[in-house]
Structures are given as structure tokens and as C-alpha cells.
Deep mutational scan, measured.
Amino acid sequence: QVNIAPGSLDKALNQYAAHSGFTLSVDASLTRGKQSNGLHGDYDVESGLQQLLDGSGLQVKPLGNNSWTLEP
């Protein structure tokens, strides 16, 4: 069960990665100043990332080996 409060997208993504045990490689300029609506409930990694990114204009991309990145 994930419980991440709304706020900074950077912070939300870092909390989610730490909670879910995956690696997220992101260029900080992509997420700077963006906000997230947070995340509450049970999600697989990709669904949770998509939910956190909702409205940010960013997309999640798998890199393999439980690693992910973001792209515009």
C-alpha cells in the first residue's frame, strides 16, 4: 500500500522509488517545479508512476532490470 502526499513531483517520485524498490533515472530539469497529486493505494510500478506523472506532460519508459526513466 502506497501513501504519498501531494506536492513536489521530485519528492513524490523519490518516495515511490524507495517504497517500491525500483531505480528511477531522471534528468532533474524534467521534473523541476512540477507538482504531483500524490498516490494512495496498491499499484504496480508502471501504473503508480503514470499516476504520479498525471498532468506533468512526462511519460514513463522502462529501461529493464527494474529501472525506469522519464521523457517528455
Rank of each mutant, 00 (worst) to 15 (best):
residue 68 W to K: 04
residue 7 G to N: 07
residue 40 H to K: 12
residue 35 Q to F: 14
residue 1 Q to H: 15
residue 2 V to K: 03
residue 49 L to N: 00
residue 37 N to T: 08
residue 24 L to D: 06
residue 9 L to T: 01
residue 56 S to C: 08
residue 72 P to E: 12
residue 10 D to Q: 13
residue 28 A to E: 13
residue 72 P to I: 12
residue 34 K to Q: 06
residue 34 K to D: 03
residue 1 Q to E: 11
residue 22 F to C: 11
residue 48 G to A: 08
residue 71 E to G: 06
residue 58 L to V: 03
residue 7 G to H: 02
residue 20 S to V: 15
residue 65 N to R: 07
residue 4 I to H: 00
residue 47 S to K: 11
residue 51 Q to A: 14
residue 35 Q to P: 06
residue 49 L to M: 07
residue 2 V to D: 02
residue 25 S to N: 13
residue 71 E to F: 10
residue 46 E to A: 12
residue 21 G to E: 06
residue 57 G to P: 00
residue 21 G to S: 05
residue 54 D to G: 09
residue 6 P to R: 08
residue 45 V to M: 07
residue 23 T to G: 07
residue 22 F to N: 06
residue 8 S to D: 14
residue 40 H to M: 12
residue 28 A to K: 11
residue 18 A to M: 12
residue 56 S to K: 03
residue 33 G to F: 05
residue 38 G to F: 00
residue 63 L to K: 07
residue 45 V to R: 05
residue 38 G to A: 04
residue 49 L to D: 00
residue 24 L to Y: 09
residue 66 N to A: 04
residue 67 S to N: 12
residue 10 D to Y: 13
residue 19 H to E: 14
residue 43 Y to E: 01
residue 52 L to F: 00
residue 23 T to Q: 11
residue 54 D to R: 15
residue 57 G to Y: 04
residue 20 S to N: 11
residue 2 V to H: 07
residue 70 L to V: 13
residue 8 S to A: 12
residue 10 D to F: 13
residue 31 T to R: 00
residue 62 P to T: 10
residue 37 N to C: 15
residue 23 T to D: 10
residue 53 L to E: 00
residue 55 G to L: 04
residue 10 D to V: 09
residue 25 S to K: 11
residue 35 Q to N: 10
residue 6 P to E: 05
residue 32 R to H: 12
residue 71 E to A: 09
residue 66 N to S: 06
residue 34 K to R: 08
residue 21 G to F: 06
residue 65 N to A: 09
residue 23 T to I: 13
residue 64 G to C: 07
residue 46 E to D: 07
residue 56 S to M: 09
residue 51 Q to Y: 09
residue 56 S to E: 00
residue 19 H to Q: 15
residue 41 G to D: 01
residue 1 Q to V: 13
residue 12 A to V: 15
residue 33 G to V: 01
residue 71 E to T: 11
residue 57 G to Q: 04
residue 54 D to T: 13
residue 10 D to K: 07
residue 21 G to C: 12
residue 52 L to W: 02
residue 37 N to Q: 12
residue 68 W to A: 04
residue 70 L to S: 03
residue 43 Y to L: 05
residue 15 Q to V: 07
residue 37 N to D: 08
residue 46 E to I: 14
residue 21 G to V: 00
residue 54 D to F: 14
residue 12 A to K: 01
residue 58 L to N: 00
residue 27 D to A: 07
residue 23 T to A: 08
residue 19 H to A: 14
residue 51 Q to G: 06
residue 61 K to V: 14
residue 15 Q to W: 09
residue 15 Q to F: 08
residue 29 S to A: 13
residue 57 G to A: 04
residue 55 G to Q: 06
residue 54 D to N: 12
residue 16 Y to E: 03
residue 10 D to P: 03
residue 2 V to Q: 05
residue 69 T to N: 04
residue 29 S to H: 11
residue 43 Y to S: 01
residue 10 D to I: 13
residue 53 L to H: 00
residue 44 D to K: 05
residue 55 G to H: 05
residue 34 K to N: 03
residue 8 S to T: 10
residue 49 L to C: 05
residue 30 L to S: 03
residue 11 K to C: 14
residue 17 A to P: 00
residue 35 Q to V: 13
residue 42 D to S: 13
residue 62 P to A: 14
residue 52 L to D: 00
residue 9 L to Y: 01
residue 36 S to M: 01
residue 40 H to V: 14
residue 42 D to V: 15
residue 69 T to I: 12
residue 24 L to C: 09
residue 8 S to L: 10
residue 6 P to Q: 07
residue 65 N to S: 08
residue 26 V to E: 03
residue 29 S to T: 11
residue 30 L to W: 03
residue 46 E to Q: 13
residue 69 T to Y: 10
residue 11 K to Q: 14
residue 68 W to G: 04
residue 61 K to S: 07
residue 10 D to R: 10
residue 34 K to C: 10
residue 45 V to L: 09
residue 57 G to T: 02
residue 41 G to Q: 02
residue 67 S to H: 14
residue 7 G to C: 11
residue 50 Q to W: 11
residue 33 G to P: 00
residue 57 G to H: 05
residue 48 G to D: 02
residue 1 Q to T: 13
residue 56 S to F: 07
residue 20 S to T: 10
residue 41 G to A: 02
residue 32 R to T: 10
residue 61 K to P: 02
residue 46 E to P: 10
residue 43 Y to D: 03
residue 9 L to F: 01
residue 56 S to G: 00
residue 37 N to R: 13
residue 46 E to T: 08
residue 3 N to K: 10
residue 12 A to T: 07
residue 41 G to R: 01
residue 26 V to S: 05
residue 8 S to R: 10
residue 32 R to V: 11
residue 5 A to F: 09
residue 67 S to I: 14
residue 53 L to K: 00
residue 50 Q to H: 11
residue 31 T to K: 00
residue 1 Q to A: 12
residue 37 N to P: 14
residue 17 A to K: 07
residue 72 P to F: 10
residue 64 G to I: 02
residue 40 H to Q: 13
residue 28 A to H: 10
residue 1 Q to L: 13
residue 20 S to H: 15
residue 49 L to E: 01
residue 43 Y to G: 02
residue 72 P to S: 10
residue 27 D to W: 02
residue 33 G to N: 10
residue 18 A to C: 13
residue 57 G to D: 06
residue 17 A to Y: 02
residue 60 V to M: 11
residue 33 G to Y: 07
residue 55 G to A: 05
residue 19 H to V: 14
residue 20 S to K: 15
residue 3 N to F: 14
residue 6 P to S: 08
residue 17 A to I: 07
residue 12 A to I: 09
residue 16 Y to F: 15
residue 24 L to P: 06
residue 48 G to E: 01
residue 50 Q to L: 12
residue 18 A to F: 10
residue 32 R to A: 14
residue 19 H to Y: 12
